[in-house]
Design a binder for these strands. Structure first.
Lengths: 227, 227
DNA sequence: CTAAAATATGACCAGGTGGTCATATGACCA
DNA sequence: TGGTCATATGACCACCTGGTCATATTTTAG
C-alpha cells in the first residue's frame, strides 16, 4: 500500500502519478516498466516517489487495486439481478460489459492482459497471494446454478467449463478489437451473439431439444442497456 | 539468419548454442533474455556470438525456425490423412498431438507462449512479417471442408470460429498442465474429449439431430496412436 | 520570530544490458 | 619458415535499471 505521504498529496499530484503509472504499466510489463520514466512523466523527483511508495511492487499493487475497484463497480449492475436472467442472458451481459469496459479503458485492459501473461513471475505470485482466487472461479457458482435450473447440460465439467468461459472472455475482447472494430458499435452485439452461439450450441450439427430454453441467437427480446 | 561461421561450427558447439538459447528464451521474454547469459551458458565468448549471429533478433528468429520445423514434422502425420477422418476426429488428433508436443518439448511450448504474448513488440512484428500468416488461419480451410461435408453448422462465422479454436488449443494445454497433470497419462484423452464435447455440442441443453455424424463423446472407436 | 518536523530533490550507487573492437589464436598453404 | 586468413576472445562502451541518502526546502507549531 502507498504510504500516508501519498494520500496526503493534493489530488492533482496523486492523479498525475496514477496516470503516469497506468501509462507505463500499459506499455511495459511489470518488469520492464521503468520507475524513472514514471517519475519523469508524473513530474516528480525520484526521491519523492520513494516517499510515496515502498517500491515498484507497491505502486503496481495500488494500480491493480484501482483498476479492480473500477471494474467491479462497472460490472455490479449486471450481477445485481442475475436471478431474473437466463444463464445465456447473464453471460451475454457479462461479456458485453466486459468488452465495453475494455473499450472505455484500453489502458486498464492492457495492464490486465500483461499481468495475466506474467504468470510465474514473482510479482504475479505476490498479487495472487495477496488478493483473489483465480478469476475463473467467478463462473463456477453461476454454472452450478444454471445446471440446477436446467439451462446448462449437467454432464459438463464445471471447473473446466469455467476455465473455458474465462478464457473466451479474453479471446472475445481480443477478437473484437483486432478483427471487428476498435469502437463500440452495432457489430459488438453481433459479435458477442455469435460468440455466445458457439458457446451455447457448439459448432456441431444439432437441433435444439423441444424444451430448450436458451436460443440466444434468435432471442432478441432482452436488450442490453447501452452506456 | 545465422552467418556461415555458425553453420561451419562443429555440431556439438552449435548444439550448445541452441540449447543455451532455448533455455534462455523459455525462461525470459525476448526483451529480457540476456545474450550474456546465453554465451556464458553455451561456453563461448561474447565476441564469438556476434560472429555467428547479427544480433539477438537473428538468434531468436533462428530458434523459432527450428521449433517451427520440429512441430510441423510432428503434426504432419495427423494432417496427412485428414480426408479419412471426421472433423471431430481431426480436431481431436490435432489437439492431442499439440498437447503431446508441448509435453515433450516444454521449453518450446514456453517459448511459443511467451512469443505469442509479446504481440505489439518490435520483434513480434518482425517475425510475423518475415514468416507466417496468423496461426488461426490454419483452421479456416478445415472448417470450410467440414461445413461442406455437413459435419459443422453452416451458419457459424468461419473466421471467428477458427480464432476460437486456436485460442482453445492454447487454453487446453494450459488447463491440462495446471489442473490435471504435467505428464502424459490417461487423463489427457479424457480432458481432450471433454473439451471437444464443449466445442462440438456447446454447453446448452440440446439433443443431437438424428442424422448427426459427430458424437465425439460416445465415439471411442477411433483411437489415437500413442507415441 | 524560531525551531522542529515533514517533505522534496537529484546526484549517486552497484549491477545489469546489447553490442564493438583491437588483439590473440591456430589452421592452412607456399 | 613466413604469411594469410578465418575465427576466438573479453575488456570496454554507452546506456539503463531500482533504490538510497545527504541535503535543501516548505510546512507546521509554539
Amino acid at each position: 500500500m502507498p504510504k500516508n505521504t501519498f494520500f496526503n498529496l493534493p489530488e492533482a499530484k496523486r492523479e498525475a502519478v496514477r496516470r503516469a503509472a497506468i501509462a507505463e504499466f500499459a506499455a511495459h510489463s511489470f518488469r520492464n516498466a521503468s520507475v524513472n520514466r514514471i517519475v519523469a512523466h508524473a513530474g516528480i523527483a525520484k526521491g519523492s516517489f520513494y516517499q510515496y511508495f515502498d517500491d515498484k511492487n507497491d505502486l503496481f499493487l495500488y494500480v491493480l487495486q484501482v483498476i479492480g475497484q473500477e471494474k467491479l463497480q462497472y460490472l455490479s449492475p449486471v450481477l445485481q439481478d442475475s436471478e431474473n436472467k437466463t444463464f445465456a442472458q447473464l453471460l451475454r451481459d457479462l461479456y458485453l460489459a466486459g468488452v465495453q469496459f475494455a473499450l472505455q479503458h484500453p489502458l486498464y485492459a492492457e495492464i490486465s492482459k500483461k499481468f495475466l501473461q506474467s504468470k510465474g513471475t514473482p510479482i504475479y505470485e505476490e498479487v495472487i497471494q495477496q488478493s483473489l482466487p483465480a478469476a475463473y472461479e467467478f463462473f463456477e457458482p453461476l454454472l452450478q446454478k444454471a445446471i440446477q435450473r436446467g439451462e446448462v447440460r449437467a454432464d459438463i465439467d464445471v471447473k473446466m467449463t469455467a476455465f473455458f468461459l474465462t478464457n473466451l472472455n479474453t479471446a472475445l475482447v481480443e477478437y473484437y478489437l483486432e478483427h471487428v472494430s476498435s469502437n463500440y458499435d452495432e457489430r459488438m452485439i453481433e459479435t458477442i451473439d455469435k460468440f455466445l452461439a458457439l458457446i451455447i450450441r457448439g459448432i456441431g450439427m444439432s437441433t435444439p431439444s423441444p424444451t430448450n430454453k436458451t436460443k440466444p441467437l434468435d432471442q432478441k427480446e432482452y436488450a442490453y442497456e447501452r452506456h
